[in-house]
Design a protein around this nucleic acid. Sequence first.
DNA 1: GGACGGTGAAACTTCAGGTTGCCTC
DNA 2: GAAGTTTCACCGTCC
Length: 505
Amino acid sequence: MIKKIDKISGDPVIDLALDTIKIGKQALVFVNTKRSAEHCAEKIAEYVKQNSNEKLVHGILTALPKPTKQCQRLAKCITKGVAFHHAGLHAKQRELVEDAFRNGTLKIICCTTTMAAGMDLPAFRSIIRDLRRYGRHGLEFIPILEYHQAAGRAGRPGKEEFGEAIVIAHRESEIQEIADNFINAEPEPVFSKLAVEPVLRTYLLSLIATNVVGNEEELVEFFSKTFWAMQYEDIESLKMTLMRIKEKLIDWGFLKRDNANFISGTDYNKKVLRVTRLGKRISELYLDPLTAHLLVEGLDRAKSVTVTEFSLLQLICSCLELRPLLKPRAKEFDKYQEFLGLHEDELLTKEPSFFEEDYEEFMATVKTTAMLMDWIDEKDDEVLMEEYNTRPGETRYKLEIADWLLYALKELGVVLKNTTFNPSIEKLRIRLKYGVREELVPLLKLKKIGKIRARALYNNNIRSIKQLKKTDPAKLRFILGNKIAEDIIRQLGSQNENSKLSENI
DNA sequence: GGACGGTGAAACTTCAGGTTGCCTC
DNA sequence: GAAGTTTCACCGTCC
């Protein structure tokens, strides 16, 4: 069936979106970069009459402590019933956009793959503009499964009889290619996640930690029954991989061979494998053993190093979990080497030499550390965007992982009886959570006091809970507003009874 | 002649997402 | 690979 739509802008994607609005329906536009999502939404919005979505706009602009240019651009699009959606948005904003699309306030969302999977957000039309995305080998086709996810958004079961999934061909010659490679293609086979070494390491340790497996023979037997082994086929090579990882775990002190139960003459493979106390905790924390090893080594180095925020942040930035890291640009290299120079004797990781392959990756940990340090120096989202090209959503995601790794570091310290740095780690976690300098930490113990209010109090010379208690309520009302001030006074009152808020942080 | 401003070509840069981990009584 | 951004040489204009 061939349908004609009005040519308004000359860009088929915009025209399709406008047509969707004209017929009173909704559409999702899938593109391959965050920037494209933003541009595309803005271009569509240019052709749409102003609506007023005041409440939604207000929500978007107040999601962050201070609205960024990105917030303002999104808000402007939203006044036209159009939005963009990608992982760079703050979670609150994403949710607002999703809800507004569901209730019909928004007509068009231009999005990246954030929208493709796992979200209940159907639309009448699904417009897939890009089937290629930047990958290891330049621009590559996206997986067929991902195309299915995007196309599958079209049609609202129970509400409409059909939906339309539309793929844009950028050239005449592409039409057949798209039909063959996507529309009529079988989705690619599913591969076992166990083939990824960090996952394999984690499960190998946990199987022993939970006594599911007690020796090497059982270990191999267990894995040979998995989907991974079925796909892999070559059992000998699989066995070698398992043994190599097991040896690493023994080297790192997470597993041990139990010699007590070893009866001479017994098959070596039946030698009992036990988890150490450290290994047990790592498994409970669901840490990748490689990350745990890095943290353990870091704790060991910490004994002979001046440990600062830089030390702790750079250590966790070296963990795989925090990837992708921020890479210094060619022009920035000197700047970050200089920054590193200031902190060289605080390092808890091994610095590779300039000529080693890892050096670039190492410098990326330094830049990422610099970003986190700026965050706890109260630099706002706009500054992070300009300086590091990292958007609020991406920053929050990194912060969440950083928090988890710092917690894990603290816990490993407990097992290793090396808790000297735990108070610093705890303080750092609070600072990362709020994005504040050290001086605000005491005030943040109160509910309803975050970065902004703590700063306001501090700037008014109220710098501790003690000082807060002595402050004239009228002054508090002036600084915080009536309601919040009342709440704080109540919290301070109840604190006297159970002394929940101690001053020792 | 020098300070600007405009222009366009060349060089450079960037490019999706976000599992489930823990605990704080 | 493509699109956007930055840099820089070059030219014209004005004072």
